[in-house]
Amino acid sequence: MPLDLKPLSDSKILVVDDDLLMRKVMGTILKDICNVDVLSDSTQVMDYCISGVPPDLILLDVHMPKINGLEVCKQLRELKAMNDVPIIFVTASVEVKSQNECWEAGGSDFISKPIAPSTLVHRVKAHLLNKARLEQLQKLTYKDSLTGLYNRHYLNEHSEAIVKQVKRLNESIGFLMLDLDFFKRFNDLYGHQAGDECLRDAADAIVESLKRPQDVAVRYGGEEFLIILPYTDLTGLQHVAENILSNIKKKNIKHAESPFEYVSFSIGGALSHTKSCEYSLEAMIKIADENLYEAKRLGKNQFVMLNALDV
């Protein structure tokens, strides 16, 4: 099966260098093949990568004031969203020791100064193409073919790492378990083709409610969905749940066998605000599922959060 790769022109590159001339040179060389953003302050890189869609590639000067490029790279590799983003160091040193430091920091490649334009272009193109191929293969492996959300295979492979990373940073993590109300009745009334379309629309409502790249939405099974929200407090968890309830209502998927007359979600939540104790993925999913059951018992089409996890 041929891979459906996105064009290089849709890729976004971040150039980080405190030298204005170097930023201009690299930006000029690369502007015709991709979108280029620039930063002169290495302390801004983490916020840039966390606050929006991560770049597809970073060109990072090794010798930066405040925080050097090696430390920036190590910090970025702590972020799940940055694990597969190529980081190419730009360095004036050709010493073996300096090159080894780049590899050990998590760098994908390095380019020596003075920069040869053809080398820069070919290195960047090669890494962008490799990243696009990897993303497409991951999509085929880890995405649900019907909804486009992550599947259980992804959950089994990657979710524990997400939990451990959050715990290592002494942060909280939230879970939402969702179930479509009266979905069997919907299928019986409208047919399975309409049911599939309903599941796709429901997945869209979930995606529209998630604003951060680190948030993970999984088709857990059938009409049940799981959302993982790292670095989220109770207010954030409630906000996402309310947005999902609002967005699925806006879809206005007619359901004559529902008392609400449209397709709706019941949602159960779980939140761990533990700073130092052990907690597990299974325990959080269990609590979210119990709260989902309570939402169903109380009449459906609502979010229930009766308890948090703090073990």
Rank of each mutant, 00 (worst) to 15 (best):
G106I: 06
S108E: 00
S108Q: 04
D109P: 05
D109G: 03
D109H: 14
D109A: 09
I111D: 12
I111T: 04
S112K: 13
S112T: 15
K113Y: 05
I115A: 01
I115H: 03
I115C: 02
I115T: 06
P117S: 12
S118E: 13
V121T: 08
V121G: 00
V124D: 08
V124E: 01
K125A: 01
A126P: 00
H127Q: 02
L128D: 03
L129I: 13
L129S: 05
L129T: 10
K131W: 01
A132W: 05
R133E: 12
E135A: 15
E135F: 07
Q136F: 11
Q138D: 14
K139G: 13
T141M: 11
K143V: 10
K143T: 12
D144S: 13
D144C: 06
S145D: 10
L146M: 14
G148T: 09
L149M: 10
Y150S: 06
N151S: 09
N151C: 08
N156V: 01
N156H: 15
E157T: 09
E157W: 00
H158A: 03
S159Q: 11
E160W: 06
I162K: 14
I162Y: 14
V163A: 02
V163Y: 14
V163M: 13
Q165F: 04
Q165C: 11
V166M: 08
R168G: 08
R168E: 05
R168C: 04
L169N: 12
L169G: 08
N170P: 00
E171A: 15
E171T: 07
S172M: 07
F175H: 00
L176D: 01
M177Q: 08
L178F: 12
L178E: 06
L178A: 05
D179V: 03
D179F: 09
D179H: 09
L180W: 02
D181T: 02
D181G: 08
F183K: 10
F183L: 09
R185Y: 06
F186K: 06
F186Y: 15
N187A: 06
D188Q: 07
D188G: 07
Y190V: 06
Y190A: 00
G191D: 04
H192G: 05
A194Q: 04
G195I: 01
D196S: 10
D196V: 01
E197P: 00
E197F: 05
C198Q: 12
C198H: 11
C198R: 10
L199A: 08
D201Q: 15
A203F: 04
A203M: 05
A203L: 01
D204F: 08
A205R: 01
A205F: 01
A205G: 07
V207S: 13
E208W: 07
E208D: 14
S209G: 04
S209D: 08
L210K: 02
K211T: 14
K211E: 15
K211G: 15
R212Q: 12
P213L: 03
P213T: 11
Q214S: 15
Q214G: 06
